[in-house]
Every structure is written in C-alpha cells, then in structure tokens.
C-alpha cells in the first residue's frame, strides 16, 4: 500500500516543482547592479568584473559595446538550443549587443566562481563587463530585451 502513497507524493511533487519552474524560468533578476550603485566608484573598480572572472572561458570574444549576453550551456540541455536562438536573435537586432555561449562542462572553474547551477543560465553584462542581471532557464525574447541596460549617455 505504501507504493501508491509514494506514487501520489511523486506526482504531486513533480507538478508543484514543474509549475514553479514554468513560472520562474527565463526571468531575469538584477544581481550586482544595486550593490555597485551604492558603492564608491573606486571600490567597484577593485571588484573583479564578471567578465574578468570568466577568464579563459570567454576565449577570443570581446565585450559588447552596450551589453554582452553570456550563456552557459551543456551537452544534455534541450532549452539551451532555444536560448541560443533567442539570444543570437537579440544580438542580431540590437546594436552593440554580443552573444557569447560557454560550455559549462568545460569551464567548471568559471561555473563555480559565478555560482552557475543550471543550464541554460544567461548573464547580462554591461559595457564594463559587470553583471546586471541573470536568468536561469530559457528566456523569451522580450525578457532579454528588457534586461539589456540602456546605453550610457556619457
């Protein structure tokens, strides 16, 4: 009889978790922007940017003049494909935005440093390479567009 209770518990757990994921996937959350704004400029400068922390994971890529969309992917990841398409499309239509895809499995150092737990995870970096937002799960195009920082007026 315990088997049927296990079955019911498993299905309820899966439905609750799946519903939560469906709601939270692809939602960008601000990360370092608020903390950075409160700090004096020189302190911000001493904190290594996410771009710097990527190290060799960024390969030969260069920062976008307006924003860089850093996507962490892995081999067994169906939503990574969708995310790649969406981010590449945004980089294609918004000037100064670059899309960089990193294979998480081969850059575990960067994955640990940046606290990446799932793939796909998308980091939005500003022109200086500081992280302004991140989203786990496949984001929709409009979610990406609204997470891109506005160009610096200066």
């Amino acid at each position: 009889m315990t088997g049927l209770w296990v079955a019911a518990a498993a299905i309820v757990l899966a439905l609750a978790f799946g519903a939560f994921r469906a709601l939270s996937d692809g939602r960008f959350r601000g990360t370092h922007s608020v903390r950075g704004a409160e700090q004096p400029a020189d302190e911000v400068a001493t904190e290594p940017s996410v771009w710097a922390q990527l190290g060799d994971a960024s390969g030969s890529a260069v920062l976008g003049e307006r924003a860089t969309l850093v996507q962490f992917s892995s081999a067994f990841c169906a939503p990574c494909r969708v995310t790649r398409r969406v981010l590449a499309e945004v980089a294609g239509v918004v000037p100064g935005v670059v899309h960089l895809e990193i294979d998480a499995e081969h850059h575990l150092e960067a994955v640990r440093r940046l606290g990446i737990l799932r793939t796909p995870t998308t980091l939005v970096l500003d022109a200086a390479g500081h992280e302004v937002a991140r989203a786990a799960g496949a984001p929709r195009k409009e979610q990406v567009l609204s997470a891109i920082p506005t160009p610096d007026p200066a």
Binding site: V6, A9, A10, I11, A14, L15, F17, V111, I116, L117
Partner: peptide, 30 residues
C-alpha cells in the same frame, strides 16, 4: 523510493517537457 524518484522525473518530462536528469548533469559535474 527509487521508483518514486524516477516517477518524479517522468512526470516532469511528460507534463512540462522538463528533463530532470539533464539538469542534474551540471550539478554532478560540479
């Protein structure tokens, strides 16, 4: 319990097309 855990993964896949094993791949690698 082992079958129950497999059932969680199968339900997520059947209802949400969500692949739990795939998500755990990076965590295991880490």
């Amino acid at each position: 319990i082992a079958i129950g855990l497999a059932l969680v993964a199968a339900t997520l896949n059947a209802v949400f097309r969500f692949c739990l094993g795939c998500e755990l791949y990076l965590v295991i690698k880490r």
